[in-house]
Amino acid sequence: MQHRRLLLGSAIAGLLLSACATASDSLMSAAPVVNGEPVVYITSADLPEVAAIAGEPGSAAPLRIVSLATGVGETLSALGVADRVVGRDETSDVPGIAAAPIVTAAHSVSAERVLALNPDLVLIDSATAPVEALEQIARSGVEVVSVPEAWTLTDMDARISAVAAAVDVDPAALLATVGELSAVTTPPDAPTVAFLYLRGTSGIYLLGGQGSGADALITAAGGIDVGASEGLDPFVPLTAEALVELNPDVLLVMTKGLDSVNGVDGLLDLPGVAQTSAGASGRVIVVDDEVLLSFGPRTPALVEQLRAALVTVTG
């Protein structure tokens, strides 16, 4: 669990480092054609804004929240307590919360910066580090609540409920909207999708496997995750040949990862990528880093977008 979060964390750190890079050119959600290849971009802007869905917080609810659990900002927003968030980690980058100061550096929590914000609730998950800083915060009398991680669509309910309980809001309304995601049956001729975690022009790329998070999204969107169906670990440094052998129809990548290999052209230059069915016909779906694995209120909309994107690229 830890190393997945670290990977996700480094992806998001990369995002922050190169924040100025691409916002404008990835703001197209239609299917632009790159060298005659269908590429679909799904950005934060394509998803509905996070609106407060739940009811009012109770009278005993915390007033000053620091959110350190990965990507929980989206859920706090939907629960209607965005204005109570006074500090956050790099990953809770949703409107309404983004203005709160970041109290982590390189994924390490600074106890001093957290306590300086005088919080009455600190939300963490099992990947929040270092433990020493969290113990210092707890010792000073601040309530520290650990919420469960979410790597599948069914994990989402437990996570939303835990966050809601911590901030004393009734989650029923929010859970109802998330629950609208109906179970899908994957047809046997569904397109196969490989989730590639890219990190630099000549770094080895990793393939998402069982429990990468992307496998749950791909299944819900009506595709077959090639890594998961091979029973591979969440993130596997794959040989070029193995990717050719898996031969996915579609590649799923994150925006910053794609930037790190110099775009679609650079992606198709990687050994093993061009020789797959997806590479040969250039079928790529690009999703913004901060929305792909957040498993929050916007995930149902993301799944719909992914489903549409799969149809678009496979024509």
Binding site: G200, I204, S260, N262
Partner: peptide, 10 residues
């Protein structure tokens, strides 16, 4: 600030 720069471990 180049996203493509390789990791140290490489």
């Amino acid at each position: 600030d180049l996203a493509g720069v390789r990791s140290t471990t490489f």
